[in-house]
């Protein structure tokens, strides 16, 4: 039991940190421009595929550096020539633009890399067992993922709170006009933040793609969960996104490891008739419910705390 708890906690924190790498960029972009980047998970996917391709040509370390740079550059171009053009048509048009972009990125990836999973593997120099918990070997690559995402997280906090660029970004979040008056190019700050956010998502894609499945549906699978994270954490709240990422990461990891169901719990008392909806609900295990738990959490949070856990604004 202790073994299961330790491994699940490690995996849950890892998954949560990966979610946060994406949710942080999404939150920054949202608080700055008021637009929810629907294509954010697509940049994660783009990062994974670029990482796969570059690591085929040049190895994993160049992929880890180049793929986020390319994806971030594409993000900045999208902001400059796409989002900025539709901005005058309002938030709905912006949201729809990113929706269409997600659509196009998925199709382009299918066009180039196909619909089947890419053969993106853990680099050989990280392919060993780092340590052993009871009888379970914990892979070095997952340890690397965990440490790397924590390092990025700390770097992001330092960037935002300790550097001049970070202060300008923070000021642009709340007082864009005043920052513009002081002589800073606010549209360029927006473009850079969009590029930074998409680059963070791409980093998550490069490191997660090797450990999980790199396929053209990975954005569609992850995207909705990402939105759950930012809504549950509170739109625009970085800390909220952090807490919600870890919460959902742990929730899903622990759910997968559990085979409890209502029928197991109430086995002696009541058994519904086979072939009814109640029977389906009765016999489903928590592991099977795992994929829908984030959405249930979303509905619960919306009923009891509509602004999200740490959210203040009601947009």
């Amino acid at each position: 039991m202790a073994e299961l708890i330790i491994i699940s906690t490690l995996n849950g924190v890892l998954y949560g940190m990966l979610l946060f790498l994406m949710a942080s960029g999404l939150t920054l972009i949202f608080s700055m421009m008021g637009v929810l980047n629907f294509a954010h998970a697509s940049f994660y996917m783009l990062g994974a595929f670029l990482g796969f391709q570059i690591s085929q040509w040049a190895g994993f370390i160049p992929a880890l550096i180049l793929a986020p740079l390319i994806a971030g550059g594409i993000g900045a171009i999208v902001e400059r020539y796409g989002l900025r053009t539709v901005h005058k048509n309002g938030h709905v048009a912006e949201l729809l633009f990113t929706f269409g972009l997600a659509f196009i990125i998925e199709e382009v990836i299918q066009m180039i890399w196909g619909k089947l999973a890419a053969d993106y593997r853990v680099p050989s120099f990280l392919d060993f067992s780092a340590f052993t918990v009871y009888a379970t070997n914990y892979p070095a690559y997952k340890t690397f993922m965990l440490l790397f995402s924590i390092a990025i997280f700390i770097g992001l906090i330092l960037l935002l709170t300790r550097t001049r660029a970070g202060l300008i970004i923070q000021a642009s979040l709340t007082h864009p006009n005043m920052v513009g008056m002081l002589g800073h190019n606010v549209p360029r700050v927006f473009m850079l933040v969009f590029g930074l956010g998409t680059a963070l998502a791409a980093i998550a894609g490069v490191i997660a793609g090797a450990a999980f499945v790199t396929q053209s549906n990975m954005a569609a699978l992850l995207g909705p969960i990402l939105f759950v994270v930012v809504v549950v954490g509170g739109l625009g709240s970085l800390w909220g996104a952090f807490v919600a990422s870890l919460l959902i990461g742990l929730l899903q990891t622990f759910a997968i490891a559990s085979d409890w169901s209502l029928s197991k719990f109430f086995s002696g008392y009541f058994t519904p008739a086979r072939g009814t909806i109640l029977f389906d609900i009765w016999t489903v295990t928590i592991a099977q419910v795992g994929p829908i738990l984030p959405y249930l959490l979303l509905v619960l949070v919306l009923i009891f705390r509509p602004t999200g856990l740490f959210g203040t604004r009601d947009t």
Binding site: P224, D280, I281, I292, Y295, L302, T315
Partner: peptide, 27 residues
């Protein structure tokens, strides 16, 4: 309860909830 962006995301979450449930509620 909420309009704008939040509504858009909630609609997405609910859609995923229903779609994922389709694998569970087989009957």
């Amino acid at each position: 309860k909420r309009g704008g962006t939040a509504f858009a995301m909630i609609s997405l979450g609910l859609a995923e909830l229903v779609y994922s449930s389709s694998l569970i509620l087989r009957s």
